[in-house]
Nucleic acid binder design. Structure first.
Lengths: 189, 189
DNA sequence: GGAATATGATTAACATGTTAAATGAAATCT
DNA sequence: AGATTTCATTTAACATGTTAATCATATTCC
């Protein structure tokens, strides 16, 4: 039988004095509110989207990344592993593992470039295509419902702002990475 | 000595016929372009942001998630584990592991709620606070540079659109999840 | 008060993210 | 040709994401 929520739940006690960070000038400024963290906002938004797809994928024993790979393969005849990594936005090691598994499941086929045995070629199998056709309809329906709820215009605008963000940061220099491990880098920037 | 790029690199061969998906009406429609996938766009944007922080965090032997936890703890006196999970946007199992490690490193302290021994209380240690003060400056500087590049207005607008997206999908029903594993769900929706 | 149920947290198991190192093959240099 | 360097991919090692199961404690019901 149901149990009511146990108690008014104390939960959080606010810190008396907020953490402060010394600025280069010597003044102290409050640290930016945690909730406004951009990576967190992107993570939360992404999860809000993804959780609707997980159930459908799980029914077909697919992970999100495996699905990304199959989707990428569906659009081409064959593709080199490195290109596939770019296309599905996966790092090499993850891709290596997943391709091994997908091949064992018969969803993809692999061979090598004859003129350069280092390069691997990947293509989707007939069974892989069948799987895509089985999953895609509900996936498309979910996308459609999301677009309806959020608004197609707003969605397009969001896509634009996201790729603009990527572009803005693409040529931003990464921190010196001064090959030192525990060096004090407070003065940097 | 440098070696020039080896060859014009064939890479990808386009599939002759694009994958198509049967619609409920019986017509065939081209599958949405893979590159337009919203989860992918969010993932790429997030990575474009995060890669600038990783080096700084690694210098202090912190992962992104450990940093999120310390940041969340810095704002409060003590917090219950469940609240911390919400605050740092981590699932329970991940949080459990990370708290175990952070406690071993002396960066946090734990105890239990006296009136309910199931609930754990977490707080940041003095050493943890020192670590935050060591990392925050460069972190803030990176945020500042990102804001400068992307534009403060645009950034605020992006935040708004992301939380609006979350809100739009919050009450969207998840797929029936019909407790069946390999059932054909093509007709769903 | 004791059985049944619910809750908070952890553990288990497996997949992926991330960085470093290793492996095998091709290109370059001499 | 042989040594060296570069390149594509894989393997290794460790941290996290994800779901299910477990464990201890609390609550509810009888």
């Amino acid at each position: 039988m149901p149990v009511k929520t146990p108690a008014p739940r104390g939960g959080v006690r606010q810190r008396k004095v907020a953490a402060r960070v010394e600025q280069s000038g010597g003044r102290a400024a409050p640290m930016r509110e945690f909730s406004r963290s951009l990576p967190m906002a992107l993570l939360r938004a992404r999860e809000a989207v993804m959780r609707h797809f997980r159930a459908s994928l799980r029914k077909h024993a697919l992970t999100e990344q495996q699905w990304r790979i199959l989707r990428a393969l569906a659009g081409v005849d064959t593709i080199e592993v490195t290109e596939l990594a770019r296309s599905a936005y996966l790092l090499g090691p993850s891709l290596s593992r997943i391709l091994r598994d997908l091949e064992q499941r018969g969803l993809i086929e692999r061979r090598s470039v004859k003129t350069d045995l280092r390069r691997g070629l990947v293509s989707i199998s007939a069974e892989g295509l069948r799987l895509i056709e089985a999953v895609a309809p509900s996936s498309e329906a979910i996308y459609a419902e999301m677009t309806r709820r959020y608004g197609a215009d707003r969605l397009a605008a969001l896509h634009e702002m996201l790729s603009a963000l990527e572009a803005s940061l693409a040529d931003m220099p990464l921190p010196g990475n001064g090959h030192l491990k525990d060096e004090d880098d407070d003065a940097s920037l």
